[in-house]
Amino acid sequence: MNKYTLSENYLTEITDPIAIETKHLNVFYGKKQATFDANLKFPKHKITALIGASGSGKSTFLRSLNRLNDEIATVTGEIKYQDIDINRKNINVYEVRRQIGMVFQHPNPFAKSIYENIAFALRQNGMTDNLDQRVEKSLKDAALWDEVKDKLTTSALSLSGGQQQRLCIARAIAVQPDILLMDEPTSALDPISSRKIETTMQELKKNYTIIIVTHNMQQAARASDLTAFFHLGHVIEYNRTKKLFTTPKMPATEDYISGHFG
């Protein structure tokens, strides 16, 4: 395996308005460090892809942004959202997660009906007015409405994997978060379902800031505006997607995207 200089990196300047930003973010699982000194700015209404080999720390980084790692890891550094460092102790993590929604690698709908999956999320967040319209809107936004409108009361678990994942997206956006984190949302799905979700993302970015972890380089190249390349827990390169894939600045990035990695 080639050795790369992990301490050097190339981070492009972001001039657009920033939705969320990390400063010197480190994540530790016990004594093992998974993410090193990550400094990334995520612009509003853009799709940012995090790429890298397995174990590169990209998922760990993503899960730290909405404090979902609290239980299992120690996260140090700053996560700046709404001009507040939300990685502090006295922060209301429930409100953080409410504003920063998440879609997971494996679809995880609740064992409830399709309708109830979304209505439940709405009710729990006090959004009980116009329930039917809200459910319909979020299903439409997730491009699932036409497929399920006639069977809203059937169990969500009877849907196909791709439909379940879009239901999870619908559930996440129903509560109107500000940022949407997606942790390899298509890795468990077939290519057609994956494509549908990519199309959905392009629609969603009009209203949301999306940060997506993917191990699929084509997906990153196709669907994202910016790309960050992670290697062994370090952010090696962060640039406009087009630039990163056509003129990578770092040798590690170049090797990774050309398939000569490791």
């Binding site: 979902l68 429930y94 953080v96 997660r97 997971f104 995880n108 729990q124 967040n125 559930r171």
Partner: peptide, 13 residues
């Protein structure tokens, strides 16, 4: 499944 818990937490519950 643990993913059910994460689904709830990620909604701010």
């Amino acid at each position: 499944s643990h993913s059910q818990r994460e689904a709830g937490w990620a909604l701010g519950l």
